[in-house]
């Protein structure tokens, strides 16, 4: 208990007393959301690629049917996980696994699992959009020089698609940092859960959650900035010279600076 029973001393007191708790919560939040985003990203890439396989006229009937069924199942997964709240998914999976499969997942593992497949559902559609947004001429150019469909995907289309969906992926990461807070319902010791227990010990909800709020904001803000920096880096140099024409090589255009 702080000597002075007013607002600021309480905030300072709680911070000094519970900072290891906040820190552990924040670290767990970051671990879950980062791992979940990365795994979700790969799920998204795999599903996005599968869902954009072209069905040729000359593919066999059986292959076509198999592909149709697979596509339908994937669509079910995407729609279900995008159409229900993550908090409910967490309850269903965590308690469902325990009841039906007699599987007692550790909360941290369960948390990563849930965030991953939830993110995967969103990323699938994002990746699919990214693939479809790559210029059709690129497919044609790749095929015409003798690339198979998988080589075209791996070397030509995905690198461009992924570059295009990077902002959407960072966005998913930031959303995940915030949304992992719902995992407190299955007792994952992330930031919100930790805050709740700190607050419960003192009945000081406002002071505690103000600190929590600031921590969340610092995390999302920093992450956004860092990712933005990488995006710019990937875009290549912001100052370069374009030679206007080969016939008049001195006609140079200098393009300076994207912000």
């Amino acid at each position: 208990m702080p000597a002075d029973n007013s607002f600021l001393p309480w905030v300072i007191f709680i911070f000094e007393r519970y900072w290891p708790l906040f820190l552990r919560g924040a670290v767990n939040t970051l671990i879950i959301s980062l791992t979940g985003t990365i795994i979700g990203f790969f799920i998204g890439v795999v599903i996005g690629v599968i869902r954009t396989i072209p069905v040729e006229h000359n593919t066999g009937v059986l292959t076509k049917l198999g592909y149709k069924i697979l596509n339908f199942l994937l669509l079910c997964y995407i729609e279900v996980f995008r159409g229900t709240p993550m908090i409910v998914q967490a309850m269903v999976i965590f308690y469902g696994a325990a009841m039906i499969f007699n599987l007692h997942l550790s909360p941290l593992f369960a948390g990563i699992f849930i965030v991953s497949i939830n993110t995967g559902a969103y990323m699938s559609e994002i990746v699919r959009g990214g693939i479809l947004s790559v210029d059709k001429g690129q497919f044609e150019a790749a095929h015409s020089i003798g690339m198979t469909h998988s080589q075209t995907m791996a070397h030509i289309v995905l690198p461009q698609a992924i570059r295009n969906i990077l902002p959407a992926t960072s966005n998913e990461f930031v959303i995940n940092i915030k949304d992992t807070s719902v995992l407190n319902v299955i007792s994952v010791t992330e930031l919100f859960f930790m805050s709740k227990s700190a607050a419960g010990n003192n009945f000081r909800y406002f002071e505690v959650f103000l600190i929590t709020c600031i921590i969340y904001f610092v995390m999302t803000f920093t992450v956004t900035r860092i990712l933005r920096y990488f995006e710019v880096l990937l875009d290549g140099p912001s100052v370069y010279t374009i030679h206007g024409s080969q016939t008049v090589p001195e006609a140079e255009i200098r393009i300076v600076g994207r912000e």
Binding site: G137, Q138, A141, S144, Q160
Partner: peptide, 20 residues
Amino acid sequence: PVALRRQIGYVIQQIGLFPH
């Protein structure tokens, strides 16, 4: 087809360089 295309040079209508 894939082997065939590797033996034939092709310049497509819209340049089609790979930007990355």
